[in-house]
């Protein structure tokens, strides 16, 4: 399925276009180079996975792509917009409209019900609480948690919590979905089911999905696998061609 989708990627709108992205962290006299000219293009309807060893710059790369972190060099356009050109407030609003996040540690607020957790992005957009929670409940049904809307996140398994996080990330129909190690806190089988859900619910003709993962058991769900090393894109694979170099 991933390979089929990838065939027509060149015909589709470019969602993310990153060229020569650089990032250096400075702490006192110490400088740590995280990205040394990373390039990436992601198209609408595509699911790409960022893979690579710890410290290779994956997290910095997706943070920059999602408008969370400022880059030190290179050019970036996400759906035609460079997030860094926006003011802090405008960038926050841009993220709210365009980016959905799935975090490694779920980050669900334990004192809210799961429907309320899912409703947060809608409420931040100004939708009234009751309607937002109703839509959150509906979204929970789509990720297989219908009927548990009032449950606390703490009463759910890790896999179920990540489903809630996926529902939260997709509720406001973002144009780009960013997932950071979504399966690393889950066992293999659960992780696979969660990623199948991301692939099923997240893939859309007008949306790009970028997943950072070490878990090669889920790579077959991607259209492309971007291998990073030492702050650069080292090679790009399709799941059926695991030896293609950049």
């Amino acid at each position: 399925m991933g390979a089929d989708a990838a065939h027509s990627s060149s015909d589709r709108q470019c969602a993310v276009s990153a060229h020569g992205i650089e990032k250096v962290y400075v702490a006192g006299d110490t400088q740590v180079v995280a990205l040394r000219g990373a390039d990436l293009q992601v198209h609408c309807g595509e699911i790409v996975m960022l893979a690579g060893p710890s410290g290779c710059g994956k997290t910095s790369f997706i943070s920059i792509l999602a408008g969370l972190l400022a880059r030190d060099g290179g050019a970036l356009e996400v759906f035609g917009q460079d997030p860094q050109s926006l003011s802090t407030e405008a960038r926050t609003a841009w993220r709210l409209r365009n980016v959905g996040f799935v975090f490694q540690q779920f980050n669900l607020i334990p004192t809210l019900s799961i429907a309320e957790n899912v409703a947060i992005p809608l409420i931040l957009q100004g939708i009234d609480r009751r309607s937002a929670i109703a839509r959150g409940s509906e979204m929970l049904g789509r990720v297989g948690l219908g009927g548990r809307e009032r449950s606390s996140p703490t009463r759910l398994s890790g896999g179920q919590q990540q489903r809630v996080a996926i529902a939260r990330a997709l509720i406001n129909s973002p144009r780009i979905l960013v997932c950071d190690e979504p399966t690393s806190a889950l066992d293999g089988a659960t992780g696979l089911r969660v990623m199948e859900l991301v692939a099923a619910q997240g893939r859309a003709p007008d949306r790009a999905v970028i997943v950072v993962s070490h878990d090669d058991r889920i790579y077959h769900l991607a259209d492309r696998i971007i291998h990073m090393d030492d702050g650069r894109v080292d090679r790009i694979e399709k799941p059926s061609q695991r030896t293609t170099h950049a």
């Binding site: 802090t88 609003a93 993220r95 409209r97 607020i109 947060i120």
Partner: peptide
């Protein structure tokens, strides 16, 4: 203790004012 949730909300698009 709630900083990580505030951080998540900030990432999702919650303004400083909110």
């Amino acid at each position: 203790d709630n900083l990580k949730y505030f951080g998540a909300m900030k990432a999702m698009g919650a303004s400083r004012g909110t």
